[in-house]
């Protein structure tokens, strides 16, 4: 019988060779992403207020509607990509969703007018660009050494064991796309105004990191 890290699949949805499966673990992550996407969809963004020390002067930052609209679009796309990455049962499909999370994360902050935020977003974009090499390379080594890309087959143990280097490449790719351990660096991007949208960057990278931990424990 299938021995799953995240629990027994409760429901399997078929897309040809790509199975989407829901275990208690992935359902939890999926619902978290779904809830936050709905929050992004319905909430009104914050307006940052600068307060001058030593006086009672303050001013609100001017944010255009078109900028907010674009960032909401990116945040929702990021939420959808995260949901896809949570439930997919295929290694290559997971890497595609992860790449999409990376690019939407850049998009969320790219529209901001502050040069400091844009500098940080640019550096982050470079990392997420180069992270596609270990990410897709890892998926390629998975396919070459096991002959299959389906996570269900990996769990069943009907295919040869996955080499450590493939897992390492997949992990490094996800780290680069989501910048998971580098929240200190991402904090620079969080200076961007617009509260629910920037948090999406953080949440999506946390979720894909939690999911990749499950994936590398499979094979």
């Amino acid at each position: 019988m299938i021995d799953l890290v995240g629990g027994v699949p409760l429901y399997v949805l078929e897309f040809g060779d790509e199975l989407v499966y829901f275990t208690p673990y992935t359902i939890t992550l999926f619902l978290l992403a779904l809830t936050f996407t709905i929050l992004v969809l319905i909430s009104r963004p914050e307006k940052q207020v600068d307060i001058a020390f030593g006086g009672d002067a303050y001013r609100t930052k001017e944010i255009s509607v078109s900028e907010m609209r674009f960032r909401r679009f990116m945040a929702i796309a990021c939420g959808l990509a995260t949901m896809g990455a949570m439930v997919t049962g295929d290694i290559f499909n997971f890497t595609l969703f992860t790449a999409m999370v990376g690019i939407t994360n850049v998009g969320i902050v790219a529209a901001v007018k502050s040069p400091h935020v844009q500098d940080a977003a640019y550096q982050y974009g470079l990392v997420s660009l180069s992270a596609t090499i270990p990410l897709f390379g890892g998926a390629a080594v998975y396919a070459a050494t096991t002959g299959s890309l389906s996570m269900i087959e990996l769990m069943k143990g009907t295919v040869p064991a996955v080499p450590l280097i493939a897992k390492g490449m997949l992990m490094l790719g996800v780290i680069g796309e989501g910048m998971a351990p580098f929240y200190a660096a991402k904090a620079e991007m969080f200076r961007a105004p617009g509260a629910p949208y920037v948090i999406m960057c953080s949440l999506s990278s946390l979720l894909i990191f939690l999911r990749v931990v499950e994936i590398v424990m499979l094979g």
Binding site: F15, F70, M74, A77, A99, I103, G107, A111
Partner: peptide, 25 residues
């Protein structure tokens, strides 16, 4: 398309997002 349908949907979506960011900027 028959065997790996979801991939072919996600790939153009990534392209769409990339073009959306580029055109907005």
């Amino acid at each position: 398309y028959n065997t790996r349908g979801l991939d072919t949907v996600v790939e153009p979506t990534i392209l769409l997002i990339a073009f959306a960011i580029a055109s907005y900027l």
